[in-house]
Design a protein around this nucleic acid. Structure first.
Length: 789
DNA sequence: GACTGGTGAGTTTTT
DNA sequence: CTCACCAGTC
């Protein structure tokens, strides 16, 4: 026990050992939060608390895995594997797997990912005969998700005056109706979406006192990481769970709240002290991670936000180097700069690849980095983005498994019914679908009784063949494990064979992916075998009943966990690789060397989040998170121009750059020695008249046309030619809400042109215009900088 | 019912 | 640029 608590500072010690009663830890970035949490758990166990009585909830699988691993190391045994540590979603899914029947769901319910959800919404919108252009699945799902996270059901949604006003204003009054149908459809399909995992867990606890009682007493100690990111449902559930013992410990940092788009509210952390009596509050303010320079930059930036919980983060670490600010001509150059800097740093400072991390605001930005790392032969791994399980060929294969596990899963069924092509086409499906909806039976049932509903000839035959095959697979469930079933599916459906005969590069990759899926399932099954050999007292059992093992290895269990899996979880930690991820994904992690890319207006801060102070402050917190990931060295970069939808776009340098204290910034690679970042100063940052010359000096002469096709287009993009337009000092953007094609306009930076194309007014917030300057170049622009002539 | 080529629309952030 | 969707053809 002495060992466990060793090396904690006074506050950390207090936080780790105050195990009875409510505790709130306000933990600054890099203050050893994970260390405290893991120590706390290890300490609990050393005090005789059973691992089965401890529940720790995190926001990412990665954070959970890390905690588990650290605890295991601390305790020196594998008792930690019996802890309930996981994301809200995965822990609740696990619980619901045993209890869902109470809510009318099959215990083998399917979990819908966002793609499935959108697909359901799409068909609901179609059935309700609404305008599919106007009721876009992503928009509608966003509204529904928001409602669910605030515990607002379909009925309440329809009756809520404020919500209805909002929907009316957006001219989408039918969302309430869609929400209702969507919920019913999911229920009929025996499926829960991501939000349902939380909502249904709440319903379960709230409706069945005996269930609540059971879990209140099972989880005598509750810990919640990143409490500032909890939303209303999560808040309510944890409140219920902790009500009996009040041994609840929450850890958070209001400065790192970056999930409000998911319904997270800082209120929860502010409310905590009012929810329980005698809340112990511990502040962790000493940073052990970063250099003084890095921390000071972070502090200076976050100070621009109003209303943070007062806290002063300090460090005893070295001053460190200044923060490097880098400007490049294009997004590709940004990638190139990062790749070469990594090479250089490795040689100079003996860093290994895994010491580096590249962070960005949007997943789309990863490509430029990826390409250049590959070109430089630097091994890298991208976290997030499309997970392995979201790839088309994998989802197709899994769709078979899903239907086998749950025939009510209509989304999966629709996916596979004619894949591989077996002659059950669109028209047939539409007919069957209508029958299913009208007679309120499942699509599967309609298929089973297809002949009875009027299927004839070849179609009827194809359907009954399909049904017979699926029934055969289902018959395997009884005594075959997930891998054996999957293997059979691969063989009998011809899926593997079809991919194998596709000799194109993509076909080969798809084939390999499916192979990898089968391997993964095999691995999982084997792993389950060892897991089930430990009983509830944590003692290894020699003779596990085959029944139990089989159960744990079943297809249903497998399916439920993979939907919640992200790519990061496949990471075995092995392999020396540079890590690429969004800033959101990087929360809670730290790296010796960090590159943050794309510090440009409309990217970071995102163009979607610049309209209210709240949105902007969240972007700023995100920047704060990015900066505080770095231990030793930090590069921040932005590009003058980048490609977006195949078009060249120009963005101003991010406003956040201005907020960093100048004396802590090394700007020798920022291209300009002006002291101002002045966004409107055409002589200032990034838009100098001589930037083409400057670029040539740094990157060499532009490559010939032929070369350009194969090598980096590091030549300054054509847009440069027209840069340098000197607007009238009184340039006032016009009200461009009526802007139309053919209008003559003046742009703040580019000068005069004609509007050739209007693009979307997406979300009514930021819109871009494609226009021709001097009859020559196409550029996409922001409305706000245009004057109609 | 299956296949093809043209067209338009889309990119925050995560489970 | 890339993907989903549509109309038109076999």
């Amino acid at each position: 026990m002495q060992d466990i608590l060793q090396g904690l500072n006074e506050q950390q010690y207090e936080a780790a050992t105050h195990i009875n009663g409510p505790l709130m830890i306000i933990a600054g970035a890099g203050s050893g939060k994970t260390k405290v949490l893991t120590t706390r758990i290890a300490y609990l166990m050393s005090q005789g608390v059973d691992a089965f009585n401890i529940l720790a909830l995190t926001f990412t699988n990665k954070a959970a895995a890390e905690m588990k691993e650290r605890i295991e190391k601390m305790l020196g045994n594998n008792e930690a594997r019996n802890l309930y540590i996981g994301t809200f979603h995965s822990v609740f899914a696990r619980i619901l797997r045993g209890e869902a029947h109470r809510l009318g769901y099959p215990n083998s319910f399917t979990i819908y990912d966002s793609e499935d959800s959108k697909s359901v919404i799409k068909s609901v919108v179609k059935d309700l005969e609404l305008d599919e252009k106007h009721y876009k699945p992503s928009t509608v799902l966003g509204r529904i998700s928001q409602a669910k996270n605030s515990l607002i059901g379909p009925l309440q949604y329809a009756e809520d005056y404020y919500i209805q006003q909002e929907d009316m204003r957006a001219n989408r009054p039918a969302i309430a109706k869609i929400y209702d149908s969507y919920a019913k459809r999911c229920f009929k399909n025996g499926a829960m979406d991501f939000d349902d995992l939380l909502v249904k867990m709440y319903e379960l606890m709230n409706t069945f006192p005996e269930v609540l009682h059971k879990f209140q007493h099972k989880f005598k100690y509750v810990l919640i990481d990143e409490y500032q990111d909890t939303n209303a449902v999560q808040y309510q559930i944890t409140k219920l769970l902790a009500a009996a013992h009040e041994n609840i410990c929450v850890v958070g940092d209001d400065a790192q709240s970056i999930y409000s788009f998911r319904g997270a509210t800082i209120e929860n952390i502010l409310q905590f002290q009012r929810d329980y009596d005698d809340v112990k509050v511990v502040k962790l303010e000493q940073n052990y991670r970063s250099t003084k320079s890095i921390l000071n930059v972070a502090n200076a930036v976050i100070n621009n936000n109003k209303g943070q919980i007062p806290k002063s983060l300090w460090t005893e670490n070295d001053e460190g180097e200044k923060i490097y600010l880098v400007r490049t001509m294009t997004d590709n150059d940004e990638g190139k700069f990062v790749a070469s800097t990594i090479q250089e740093q490795k040689l100079r400072n003996h860093f290994s690849n895994s010491d580096f991390s590249i962070l960005y605001r949007t997943n789309a930005q990863s490509r430029a980095f990826e390409e250049n790392l590959r070109r430089s032969g630097i091994p890298y791994k991208i976290y997030g983005g499309l997970s392995f399980y979201q790839r088309k060929e994998i989802k197709d294969f899994i769709a078979y498994l899903r239907v086998i596990g749950n025939v009510r899963d209509e989304e999966a069924l629709k996916r596979i019914i004619n894949y591989p092509i077996r002659g059950i086409g669109k028209t047939t499906m539409e007919k069957l679908q209508t029958i299913a909806n009208e007679s309120n039976i499942t699509l599967w049932e309609v298929l089973e009784r297809a002949a009875e509903f009027g299927a004839r000839g070849a179609t009827s035959e194809a359907i009954s063949k399909f049904v017979t095959m699926m029934r055969y697979f289902q018959s395997l469930l009884k005594d075959k494990n997930a891998f054996e079933v999957a293997n059979e599916v691969g063989k009998h459906t011809g899926l593997v064979k079809e991919l194998f005969s596709d000799k194109t590069a993509e076909g080969l990759a798809r084939y390999e992916n499916v192979q990898e899926l089968l391997n993964a399932i095999k691995e999982w099954v084997d792993q389950q075998e060892t897991l089930t050999q430990i009983d509830e007292d944590g003692i290894l059992i020699d003779n596990v009943s085959t029944e139990e093992t089989k159960n744990a290895q079943s297809l249903g269990v497998y399916l439920q966990q993979i939907t919640l899996l992200t790519d990061a979880d496949k990471d075995d930690g092995k392999g020396d690789m540079v890590k690429l991820m969004t800033i959101h994904a990087a929360k809670g992690l730290e790296f010796p060397v960090v590159f943050v890319g794309g510090l440009e207006e409309s990217i970071f801060p995102s163009g979607m989040s610049i309209n209210t102070r709240e949105e902007l402050e969240e972007e700023r917190r995100l920047f704060y998170v990015a900066v505080t990931r770095a231990k030793k060295k930090l590069w921040i970069s932005y590009a003058n121009t980048r490609y977006r939808f195949g078009n060249l776009v120009q963005n101003d340098p991010s406003r956040f750059l201005e907020e960093m204290p100048k004396e802590l910034i090394d700007r020798k690679n920022a291209g300009s020695n002006t002291t101002s970042f002045g966004l409107n100063n055409s002589n200032g940052f990034g838009f100098k008249n001589n930037s083409a010359i400057e670029a040539e000096r740094r990157y060499g002469a532009p490559p010939s046309l032929k070369q350009r096709a194969t090598s980096l287009p590091s030549q300054p993009p054509a847009v440069q030619k027209i840069i340098g337009h000197q607007p009238d000092n009184n340039f006032q953007p016009s009200d461009t809400s009526n802007l139309k094609e053919g209008d003559q306009v003046e742009h703040l930076k580019f000068g005069f042109g004609t509007v050739t194309k209007m693009e979307g007014a997406i979300h009514n917030r930021i819109a871009t215009v494609l226009f021709k300057t001097n009859g020559e170049k196409k550029i996409m622009l922001n409305y706000a900088k245009l004057r109609i002539l």
